[in-house]
């Protein structure tokens, strides 16, 4: 396949004796939006954790840009272009909204801790007071997710829906090629949901491939180019959203053994 950016083969993760993800193989292409769905406990977040380097796989491989990256640490994968958000937000709560972005804008491929610390002694490296480029980029990202009015607010004081957007902006600030979104719409009201769909579409419009875990069908059906369904850690279906939605195995996974497909 042309422009494939990520491929997993037989990806498996055990927690003790529990198989959270079992033998999952799939591929993502550049610039596509893939929805990852499945009932609670299906292993969706575990799969995203594996792809983002939160922990190494028990077996199986992950290739990113043709390179085997299974077992790479999260910070390393981020530097290679994989960014993510979290189901339960993990923003930096004692930092301001702007500083949350500032932390992500630092070019961490070039600036390791020593270089950053020593540079700060003679130059205001990545200080938003002094670095006009960094500030402009931070402002642009805040504007993109509609948080400009809150930029000097402490992140812990943000309404819930905005913390989700801040996390997205923070992930974008690292200039990803692949963005993994773990339930970006959970807990949002209908209006916020529409805003969120708009944001995700615009990110994709800039050429970023997106893998999105989502329970809200309105979101997943309207933006996904393709769906992957997990059930008990196994991939049970994959394909165009409408086809997957009618797939008897998928309906069975969601509704139980005796359910019939309604047409």
């Amino acid at each position: 396949m042309a422009d494939e950016i990520l491929r997993t083969d037989g990806l498996t993760k055990y927690f003790g004796g529990l198989c959270a993800v079992g033998d999952v193989s799939f591929a993502l292409s550049d610039g596509e939006i893939v929805g990852l769905i499945g009932p609670n406990g299906a292993g969706k977040t575990t799969l995203v954790n594996l792809m983002s380097g939160a922990f190494p796989p028990s077996s199986g491989t992950i290739h990113y840009n043709g390179r085997s990256v299974g077992g790479f640490k999260a910070h390393r994968l981020n530097k290679m272009g994989i960014a993510r958000t979290f189901q339960v937000v993990r923003i930096f709560k004692t930092l301001t909204v702007l500083e949350n972005i500032q932390a992500s804008l630092i070019d961490r491929r070039r600036y390791g801790p020593w270089r950053l610390a020593l540079t700060s002694l003679y130059k205001r490296a990545y200080s938003l007071d002094a670095d006009a480029d960094a500030r402009q980029e931070a402002e642009r990202l805040l504007d993109f997710v509609g948080l400009t009015d809150y930029r000097d607010e402490l992140a812990e004081n943000l309404p819930y829906a905005y913390t989700k957007r801040l996390e997205i902006a923070r992930a974008l600030a690292t200039r990803p090629r692949l963005l993994l979104l773990d339930e970006p719409s959970a807990g949002l009201n209908p209006r916020e949901l529409d805003d969120q769909i708009g944001i995700i579409r615009r990110i994709n419009g800039q050429g970023v491939a997106i893998l999105i875990i989502e329970h809200v069908m309105k979101v997943i059906m309207s933006i996904s180019h393709r769906l992957i369904v997990l059930h008990y850690g196994k991939k049970i279906a994959e394909g165009a959203p409408e086809a997957v939605y009618r797939d008897p195995r998928v309906v069975e996974a969601y509704l139980g053994g005796d359910a019939h497909v309604a047409h």
Binding site: K73, A74, H75, N78, R90, S104, I106, R108, P113, A171
Partner: peptide
Amino acid sequence: DDEVGAESIGVD
């Protein structure tokens, strides 16, 4: 504030 969050933005 959040070690996992920091890792996710490329902080070693």
